[in-house]
Design a protein around this nucleic acid. Structure first.
Length: 426
RNA sequence: GUGGGUGUAGCUCAGUGGUAGAGCUCCGGAUUGUGGCUCCGGUGGUCGUGGGUUCGAUCCCCAUCAUCCACCCCA
């Protein structure tokens, strides 16, 4: 067992039983993006390490200890992408998509982070990301939230997720607040637990989120982010909440909502669920107005979010919201009994598919008794067993046996059989 | 990176210091070319891996790997 090569830890195979549900989800997403006028972009899975270091932040956990980074044969520093926004910005800039225009983009694909796997958290996981460029008003922030809300409604998840909102203020306001906060924490250094002391330099805003009861009193007295917002950010946030109110989207303002990536400023939001255990964030994002410039482009306002596909799939399963039609089956199963029939079956299958493009047909291969073949036909879930035995071959007919309904089995000349199939597929 | 739980047949799991079982699945038969239900039979395991204790280890001990859950982090 141990000598066999296994999948990499935290990287999962997606088996045939699962793929219809993924396809259902992906189909819903793609159709939704079309309806909102977002266009798909596909970028490489590997980028220069520097792209992520400069965008996500040098001292974040993601960059410091979770990236799959390596040197390629040329000695270049490359990394498997840990998220999609940086690549999206890079590609959009590189191809002039952000030049004097607004842009609505989305993407989908695997991301990689070297974390300890647990429920809803894997080393290779999939995100759907949605990004909008060149628009600074809160209307586009609201659009993204409405878009995600519509997806939850389509999937039946809306009642099971909660929207949390916060504003981090402008980059300057955020930096100033950060300094104030660090000074406050340093003056209470003796109360800080080990985790918080570590976070003092990496992500001090996170300390506010600590669940340690010993720090509760100290945290309650900490300076509040919302009190340190700059006026434009405050106004932006007020307008965003007003738009959501008007649209009838409930939200909870969470002053402690802090995103882990350095590039966020102003609006940030998170959709969470309590049904998945500790990895309850199912979708999250926010504004990153400074990132494009930071990566060498012209100043360009930007907002975006990403959804965790595994978590959403898990949620659909947990809540029993998997639609029945996402179970793919086959319409008919062609049996071949006897040497002559076996020779003809494949060709007959091709003829049927030529004239019946909607037919999902499973042609039996590998021989076996009549009984074993019809058992397999039954297990395949097919509505019909098409029977090609010695008699049918000799007479140029085809047997049709109905496996799921009370209906007499019939044996028809080939042409008539095709017509019958055509009727049944309608 | 830290802590805890779990690794026995393809799957779900029993079990014992004397080298293993059930249910389901799969294959065959009862029914020469007719599935689902029933009955009968069969295939299938170096008991995760390596070491230690022991006359003897699947069981006890250590290590290791995998997996699950939580911390952390985040989608």
């Amino acid at each position: 067992m141990s000598k066999k090569i296994q999948a990499i830890r935290g990287m999962n195979d997606l088996l045939p039983e699962q793929s219809p549900l993924w396809q259902y989800f992906e189909g819903q997403v793609a159709a939704l993006m079309l309806r909102y006028g977002y266009r798909e972009i596909r970028t490489p899975i590997v980028e220069q390490t520097a792209l992520f270091a400069r965008s996500i932040g040098e001292v974040t956990d993601i960059v410091e200890k979770e990236m799959y980074a390596f040197e390629d044969r040329n000695g270049d520093n490359l990394a498997l992408r840990p998220e999609g926004t940086a690549s999206c910005v890079r590609a959009a800039m590189e191809h002039g998509l952000l030049h004097n225009q607004t842009q609505r983009l989305w993407y989908q694909g695997p991301m990689f982070r070297h974390e300890r796997p647990q429920k809803g958290r894997y080393r290779q996981f999939h995100q759907v990301g949605v990004e909008a460029y060149g628009m600074q008003g809160p209307d586009i922030d609201a659009e993204l939230i409405l878009l995600s809300a519509r997806l939850w409604k389509q999937l039946g998840l809306f009642e099971h997720v909660t929207l949390e909102l916060n504003s981090l203020g402008s980059l300057e306001a955020r930096a100033a607040y950060r300094s104030t906060l660090v000074a406050y924490f340093e003056s209470h250094f003796d109360v800080l637990d080990e985790d918080s002391r570590r976070r003092l330099s990496s992500n001090p805003l996170r300390i506010l989120d600590s669940k340690n009861p010993d720090m509760a009193t100290m945290l309650a007295g900490a300076p509040q982010l919302l009190d340190h917002l700059d006026a434009p950010s405050r106004e932006h946030f007020a307008q965003l909440t007003a738009l959501l109110d008007a649209a009838g989207i409930d939200y909870r303002i969470n002053p402690r909502l802090v995103r882990g990536l350095d590039y966020y400023s102003r609006s940030v939001f998170e959709w969470t669920t309590t049904a998945l255990g500790s990895q309850g964030t199912v979708c999250a994002g926010g504004r990153y107005d400074a990132l494009v410039e930071q990566l060498g482009g012209k100043p360009t306002p930007a907002v975006g979010f990403a959804m965790g596909v595994e978590r959403l799939i898990l949620l659909l399963e947990t809540l029993d919201l998997v639609p029945a039609q996402s179970q793919h089956g086959v319409d008919a199963y062609l049996l071949a009994i006897g040497e002559r029939a076996e020779h003809q079956a494949l060709l007959l299958g091709e003829q049927l598919r030529d004239v019946l493009p909607d037919l999902a047909l499973h042609v039996h291969c590998g021989g076996g008794s009549f009984k074993s073949q019809i058992k397999k036909a039954d297990k395949s879930g097919a509505r019909l067993a098409l029977i090609l035995g010695e008699e049918e071959v000799a007479q140029g007919t085809l047997g049709l046996k109905y496996l799921r309904e009370e209906r007499e089995q019939e044996t028809l000349p080939r042409d008539a059989a095709i017509e019958r199939l055509r009727e049944l597929l309608r």
